[in-house]
Nucleic acid binder design. Structure first.
Lengths: 148, 148
DNA sequence: CAATGATAGTTAGCGTGCTAATAATAACTG
DNA sequence: CAGTTATTATTAGCACGCTAACTATCATTG
């Protein structure tokens, strides 16, 4: 059997390569990959609970917790306890968390453009469309029916 | 700016979701994701040096080293020192390393079919083609010219 | 209102990826 | 052939993803 000719194998290779590539580029603005995925969500809406962030990003809560600890250390976000629910916390962007957005967008556009330069206009559209389908496939799977 | 509408962001989401999905499926045959990528390469050709495996798979040598240590522990491969070069080692599949192949192929076909069931015949071909382009983009970048 | 169950965050521990730094050996060069 | 350079494997240490297990709190229900 030729594993190399499967979409799954291709996806795996592309996945790690893409992540490694992003990591290198983000180093220029002092960010890590995981931090960026959280920032994307916080830039959309501030002051949410960790569990809500995690669900939206599609990561496990311990993963988000660890990433947030790192972000608090470098001063990108603050963690505030809720008054009406002592279990939960709200995550707020600091001034630095807001300020870094411009630089990140620059890098992001560069990365996107460099990657897309390999493709024609039509291919870009199709690639986006097909990847969206793959994403929906994974995030559409009901977690309760995932296991056996 | 809408990060969600970039291919890079889509790729990131799909990347982690796909890897997590693979990991769950592979648990059924007692394998981890990294081990599988090494197995793919060893099934193609046995008895290669770690550095050659790493280059072919597209991983850093310390990463491959760690994965191999785990595989030796569970008895999938053996590590042999070269006689004519005391620095290098050769990695050989054990009987178990060969034997597991059938079960892995079954799982692999399942995963592939389930994912592809979302797509038409034409879309599958295009998806494979576009992902191949992305892979070539990342692995075609000359490491010497990567930096600034 | 006491007991039970659900929820939020955290800790511990593992596998996978990286870079930087070491040690040992091979290869090359003056 | 002595000294430098290059190569191979390894170690240490970090980020990121997961599950399992724990604590604290809230909600529900007897």
């Amino acid at each position: 059997m030729k594993f190399e000719e499967t979409v799954s194998h291709l996806l795996s290779r592309v996945a790690t390569a893409h992540k490694a590539h992003l990591e290198k580029r983000l180093a220029g603005v002092g960010l890590h990959g995981g931090q960026l995925s959280v920032l994307f969500e916080l830039w959309r809406r501030d002051g949410r609970r960790q569990v809500d962030l995690a669900r939206e990003i599609g990561l496990a809560t311990p993963t988000v917790n660890k990433i947030l600890n790192g972000m608090i250390e470098v001063g990108l976000v603050d963690r505030t306890r809720l008054e009406d629910d002592a279990r939960a916390t709200r995550i707020y962007l600091t001034d630095e968390g807001h300020a870094i957005r411009g630089r990140v967008e620059e890098v992001w556009l560069e990365v996107e453009e460099e990657l897309l330069s390999e493709f024609t206009e039509t291919e870009r559209y199709i690639l986006f469309d097909l990847l969206t389908k793959v994403r929906n496939y994974y995030f559409g799977i009901d977690p309760d029916q995932t296991g056996e």
